[in-house]
Simulated scan of single mutants.
Amino acid sequence: MRVASNAALVVVDVQKGFDDPVWGRRDNPDAEGNIAALIDAWQASGRPVVLVRHDSVLPGSPLRAGAAGNAFKDVVEERRGKGSGPELLVTKSVNSAFYGEPDLDAWLRGAGVAQLVVVGIQTNMCNETTARMGGNLGYEVLFPLDAMHTFDLAGPFGWTQTAEELTRATAVTLHGGGFARVVTTRDVLEGLEGLAG
């Protein structure tokens, strides 16, 4: 796998509000470490990094603007502005990073970016929606499944799915449906190294 020299790392909603117990049980405790490794690699290589923040419009949300939970987790905040390449902050109030401010698609196209790597929170929500839309817009999307996490969820008809089940469903849908290529953090890092020099 090759990672383009100008591939953008899109870091979705890695915010303190997702540590609130209201969300329930999560999967993948290694997510933040893998996100950190990818940000570090992107910043060291001068590739563009997009930090996406969810500014919830729901009054009680831990992610609402002005709440402590709206802030980025330390793993992201301590890395902001440290790279040698371009960095963009996108704020949104819906699932897709492409429906935020400023216009992510316009920024990426203006920079000639054709390949995205989507990481962050939550796997089956904003990450999946951003990846689907990226695929629809013609980007090559890489989706390192171990650099994200989600939570158990209740749905209709009394159905519930564990975080692991939701993660697997997202992976099958995105990869099998042709929206994105589901990979691992190691795959991506090795893809970066393959272009070194």
Rank of each mutant, 00 (worst) to 15 (best):
H149T: 00
A8D: 02
N95V: 01
D20G: 04
A169L: 15
A154D: 15
H175V: 03
A171L: 11
D27L: 08
V113R: 02
M1S: 03
G155P: 02
R181Y: 09
I39C: 10
D105C: 11
Q115W: 06
G134A: 09
E128S: 08
A111N: 14
N95R: 14
D30N: 07
V94M: 12
S5M: 06
L88F: 04
L88A: 10
L108H: 06
T160G: 10
Q115H: 07
H149L: 13
G112V: 07
N70R: 02
P62Y: 01
N28H: 03
E77A: 14
L88W: 09
D20K: 06
T162L: 11
G81N: 05
G85F: 13
A147N: 08
I35N: 04
D55Q: 10
L153H: 14
I39M: 13
E165H: 05
P102M: 05
F72N: 05
G197L: 13
R26Q: 09
G197H: 13
R132Q: 07
W107D: 12
T130P: 09
H175C: 02
D152M: 11
T150C: 14
D13M: 08
G158K: 09
L189C: 11
T162S: 12
V57F: 04
D187F: 03
A106F: 02
P62S: 02
N136M: 11
A180R: 03
A65R: 14
V75F: 07
A31S: 13
N6Q: 13
R53G: 07
V52I: 15
Q43K: 12
D27P: 06
Q115R: 02
T184I: 00
M1A: 10
L142M: 09
R47Q: 13
A65W: 10
L108E: 15
R25S: 14
V188A: 09
A163V: 13
V49L: 10
G24S: 11
R132P: 01
A68V: 15
K16G: 02
R25E: 14
V52A: 12
E140I: 01
V50D: 00
V57H: 01
E101D: 09
T170S: 11
A65V: 10
P86G: 14
K82D: 07
V183K: 01
L108N: 14
E190G: 04
R53P: 00
A37N: 06
W23Q: 03
L145C: 03
V183C: 07
G191L: 08
P62C: 03
N28P: 06
K92Y: 12
T123M: 13
K73V: 11
D13F: 03
V183D: 00
P156R: 13
S93D: 12
G176L: 05
E165C: 12
Q15L: 06
